[in-house]
Amino acid sequence: MTPVLSDALRAFGLAALQAVFLLAMAPLLKTLIKMMKARLQNRQGPPLLQGYYDLAKLLRKETVRSETASWVFVAGPRVYFAAAVSATTLVPVLISAAPLEAAGGVLLLVGTLALGRFALATAALDTGSPFGGMGSSRDMTIAALAEPALMLGLFTSGLAAGTLNLGALARSALQHGVTFHPSDVLAFAGLFIIVLAETGRVPVDNPATHLELTMIHEAMLLEYSGPDLALVEWASAVKELLYLTLLVDLFMPVGMATSAEPVALLMALVAWAGKVFVLAIAVTITESMNAKLRLFRVPELVSISLGLAFLALTIRFL
């Protein structure tokens, strides 16, 4: 019994370490994208640490809640945060293994994130604000379309590797290296589109807007303030970093450490940061050069992603 317990403790410790690492890095990514977007518009943009300042400010601030809010409203951000944090333990980041990969693979990851999403969407409805309902309804619509596409995209990679375990997927990708196989390219493009949708980026949602009527994710947060808001913002940032890391794991595994040696880890850190940075540039350019889609055009975008995943799958088995 003891070795099981000690291994479980060790896994839990590693999981906590990875979660803390991603929590620490996530605000940086958010600000980095904002900064690069600003530069593309000839603006100065926020300082690189702005994300941390914002979180620190929100965590210190007073909490204002609606008179009509119930426990659902209070639970929303906490469950959303917990879901995002625990999802980090399923995805390999620096080492080609995830701390809790044995618990489940793709399905558990998507399910955990969906749990957070559900909690937030329900909480948004709780106060009776029409904007909350609007955001919630739109977010659920997009989720209903994007989640199947996300799963199909991940299954495509999974079929090639013969596993749905994210650690094993990363190891298989590492073994094959970057192939530029047409099926990989197509699968990547399909997943990238879904990542944009899942993280509320243009052309699906506009994270920078002040127009309540056009919001999706932000509309759900309008009633939140102080630490509650900080939790949601932080968790969203973690989610985004997690999705980009997932893309890195599946399609650009180069530089990932295979053991926990300090030198290998350091190199893996540099490689990971570089690859996430490249993806962040891609997100920035997409956000800058496109207008937001009309709400009812989003299904078309998702169907493009589905089509790409199908094509990738077909090519893989040709």
Binding site: P3, V4, D7, A8, R10, A11, F12, L14, A15, A16, A19, P77, R78, V79, F81, A82, A83, A84, V85, S86, T89, L90, A97, P99, L100, E101, A102, A103, G104, L108, T112, G167, L231
Partner: peptide, 25 residues
């Protein structure tokens, strides 16, 4: 995987991770 021989407790540990996230929040 670091805990390959103890796969059967992994889901429980993931449950703990979820609770840990909640506690942190």
């Amino acid at each position: 995987s670091p805990v390959a021989s103890f796969d059967h407790v992994a889901p429980a540990v993931f449950g703990l991770a979820l609770l840990g996230g909640l506690a942190a929040a």
